[in-house]
């Protein structure tokens, strides 16, 4: 067990350390600059986003006692997409310079953040209603996601070609070249989120024995659910604001980790963090290397890997 934890940590760190060096040639005067100004911050970004999405996914799966719970199923990512599309489309009407930036931040990121947070808080509000059952919350999340998706599609229909391309690129999920500034702006959001979520390990472990048993053991179940949903939404919103809805990471990584290391949240939560960081960095490496001379959005890779992997997990789970 300890050996496997160590091995996964080493593999994850190795991916993070090596991936900036792989890809196009780093020879020449520009090489050093490409490495330190473009690739290293991008790998750091991938690590932060992958770690956050995976940890939040693992926590959501616990509070909902549902292996399908993830930031995408409670509406967080749909809200972000809706939020991001509004300025993308408005930009074509008002002129791009009108919406370029506010407070020195891209408006798209701000709007995506607001959208993600608003929708998840709406769903969290349903969750803290004492009488709402777990599946009600997931259904609410899916309903809100569908509604947000419909509005998004409507917005895209009214957009011109440039905005449409930007919208598609955004909604596929990608790791932007935002440099160290993006990393530094993401850190103050995701670090506290990690700390707060990891501090709930004991309560989340107690929830594995069932909601009511956890209640009888002293866990304030509605409170923990609202806390994890709200804090998780904050972290995911910050990530999605920069990268768009990167599919499947929050769903897949916790499943992979529990396959190898078991369900105890004392191991699963921190290791989802570590493996998620390595996983998204590896996927981004694949996105850079897949097509020579072009770059795929990383969301295409994660979804392309994630969907079959999920089916495989389900089939495997059914057999045992």
């Amino acid at each position: 067990m300890k050996l496997r934890v160590m091995m996964l940590c080493v593999v994850s760190l190795a991916v993070l350390a090596l991936s900036p060096w792989l890809g196009g040639s780093l020879k020449g005067d520009l090489g050093w600059q490409i490495l330190w100004q473009l690739r290293v911050p991008r790998v750091l970004m991938a690590a932060l986003v992958g770690a956050t999405l995976s940890l939040v996914g693992a926590c959501y799966q616990t509070i909902f006692a549902n292996p399908l719970a993830a930031p995408s199923t409670v509406g967080t990512t749909a809200g972000a997409t809706l939020g991001a599309l509004v300025p993308l489309v408005l930009g074509t009407i008002l002129g791009p310079q009108m919406i370029q930036s506010a407070f020195g931040l891209p408006v798209t990121a701000l709007a995506a953040f607001a959208g993600a947070l608003a929708v998840s808080l709406l769903v969290a509000a349903v969750a803290v209603q004492g009488r709402a059952r777990v599946n009600d919350v997931l259904l609410a999340g899916i309903a809100v996601s569908l509604a947000a998706g419909a509005i998004s599609a409507g917005l895209q229909y009214t957009a011109d070609q440039a905005a449409l391309f930007a919208a598609i690129q955004w909604s596929l999920g990608h790791l932007p070249q935002v440099g160290y500034r993006g990393v530094l702006m993401l850190l103050p959001f995701v670090l506290p989120v990690w700390v707060v979520l990891l501090l709930q390990t004991r309560a989340l472990n107690a929830l594995l024995g069932g909601e009511q048993r956890a209640h009888s053991q002293g866990v304030d179940v509605p409170r923990i659910r609202a806390l994890v949903l709200g804090v998780g939404a904050l972290g995911v919103a910050a990530c999605v604001a920069w990268c768009g809805p990167i599919a499947f990471v929050g769903l897949l990584v916790p499943h992979l980790v529990r396959l190898g290391l078991g369900v105890n949240r004392r191991v699963l939560l921190p290791m989802s963090l570590v493996v998620g960081a390595g996983f998204l960095a590896a996927c981004d490496l694949g996105a850079r290397l897949a097509l020579p001379g072009r770059e795929l959005p990383v969301g295409v890779i994660t979804a392309g890997l994630g969907a079959p992997a999920l089916v495989w997990l389900i089939l495997r789970g059914n057999r045992s």
Binding site: G210, R213, Q217, N264
Partner: peptide, 27 residues
């Protein structure tokens, strides 16, 4: 003050027995 053995409370995930008992120490 009070502990509870619920009726038919299956544990859906393969939690180790020790971890389930550790949860009793939550308080």
């Amino acid at each position: 003050l009070v502990g509870w053995l619920p009726q038919n409370a299956p544990v859906p995930e393969p939690v180790a027995a020790l971890d389930l008992v550790v949860a009793g120490r939550f308080r």
